[in-house]
Amino acid sequence: MSLPIKQISLLARLIIGSLFIYASGYKVFDPADFATSVRNYMILPPGWTNFVAITLPWVELGAGIFLILGILTRPAALLTTSMLAVFLAGLAHAYWIGLDIDCGCFSSAAQSTGKIGLFHFVRDSCLLLISAFIVIFDRGHFSVLRNQPLDV
């Protein structure tokens, strides 16, 4: 019995797409707060953090919408996969140098209470795998654009 790749891919798109839209919410509406989260990770030079906080949430939001609608699905999934890989690297960096900071992943750094831990690594790794699955296996099924080539 072969795996229902089409259905699994749709499910993966819905999971990653909705999570990215949800995660972009507070960041889109409060870039100043998200900029603080970015600075807390101490990876980027501080001068660049505002730029990232202004642009990244919109990439998250856009990629999430594209994934759910099935428009340019694989390029959108490549974006989410890349972002998840960067987030994972950020978490690892923060954990490595012993930063006592909030994840800032889904909620404001000022509101969230969960410090970075194993849970964040597992969660991000799972999402990374799901997102990579879309890049590799999605063939453009269940797309709102019917004329989209299936082999992009």
């Binding site: 990244l56 919109w58 990629a63 390029p75």
Partner: peptide, 13 residues
């Protein structure tokens, strides 16, 4: 396409 998408979405932001 990913790169163009990223630039366009960043510009909207």
């Amino acid at each position: 396409i990913s790169l163009v998408m990223c630039i366009c979405l960043s510009s909207i932001g």
